[in-house]
């Protein structure tokens, strides 16, 4: 395990070095993320201004949730840049080059490049989270436990998103192309997660707490921390869901790798 971590670090260091050959690429990426986030937040706030609190969630509550989901999004995207367009490995048979390396195939894939620009998303998400926590006087009620809960939520949420993008990439071993599935499995749920899940119909809520377990990453911990749900122990649900979804995604991945068919030369 320690040895893999060491290899991970070295590969990441070199992929950052490779990335540095294209400094403008990095800069435009950053700019793009900042603009995207601002636009998304503006949309949420505009809706709130029109309709008032949604399902008992005030504007500040929703900014808290939004910050949490944004930071988690940045958190998994830093590591999952290659999984996002994993299709290319399958369509062009580049996955061959991954499998001939003495390392777990998923590790080899995710270290191919690191999306450092996503650090900006994490920072923006954390800033929103901190601002909302301050205005909601969270510390005054629960003290430092709030930060512990937020930390657990952020890590669990990032892991859940990472598991989902891994599962999506793994589906490519069956379908070859996954770009049609991405909006259903990833982008849609990501937008959905920015709002309290209680506004959605029962069936969709059930979906977000099972097959696409994003509810455990954003809504559940936010509801617990904001006292919209009884029982602070519920935060453990997020950690358990993160562990379970990661295990499921890794299982699906290695099942898929066995089906890999490569391409002719």
């Amino acid at each position: 395990m320690a040895a893999w971590w060491n290899i991970y670090r070295i590969l990441v260091r070199y992929s950052i070095r490779a990335e540095r050959q294209y400094p403008w690429n990095f800069f435009f990426n950053l700019l793009f993320h900042v603009l995207m986030l601002t636009a998304e937040l503006a949309t949420v706030l505009l809706i709130l201004a029109r309709v008032g609190p949604i399902a008992g969630w005030s504007a500040k509550d929703i900014i808290f949730l939004f910050g949490l989901v944004t930071a988690e999004g940045g958190g998994f995207r830093i590591f999952a840049a290659e999984l996002h367009d994993f299709d290319k490995y399958l369509v062009h048979g580049e996955f061959d080059a991954i499998l001939i390396r003495p390392a777990p195939s998923l590790l080899s894939v995710i270290t191919r490049s690191i999306d450092i620009g996503q650090a900006a998303m994490i920072l923006q998400g954390l800033a929103l989270l901190a601002w909302a926590s301050w205005r909601l006087h969270l510390m005054a009620v629960d003290g430092w436990a709030v930060w512990l809960a937020m930390g657990l939520a952020l890590v669990s949420g990032s892991v859940i998103w990472f598991a989902m993008v891994t599962a999506l990439a793994a589906l490519g071993f069956w379908t070859t192309r996954t770009d049609d599935l991405a909006p259903v499995i990833l982008y849609g749920p990501e937008t959905a997660a920015q709002y309290p899940l209680s506004i959605y119909p029962q069936a969709i809520r059930w979906l977000f707490f099972s097959v696409l377990p994003i509810g455990f990453g954003g809504y559940l911990p936010a509801a617990v921390i904001l006292h919209k749900m009884a029982g602070s122990w519920m935060i453990v649900g997020s950690v358990a869901a993160a562990a379970a979804s990661l295990a499921a995604a890794l299982g699906l991945w290695s099942w898929g790798v066995r089906r890999y068919t490569s391409t002719g030369t």
Binding site: N6, I7, I10, L11, Y14, R17, A18, E19, Q21, G93, E94, D96, A97, I100, R101, P102, A103, T265
Partner: peptide, 26 residues
């Protein structure tokens, strides 16, 4: 393993650094 039609080196890095990565990997 060498596949003639596909590179296994790191495209954007100097050969020297590709070798360093392989050293760590193996």
């Amino acid at each position: 393993i060498v596949f003639g039609q596909r590179s296994q080196l790191w495209w954007d890095l100097p050969l020297r650094e590709s070798f360093e990565i392989l050293r760590a990997l193996y």
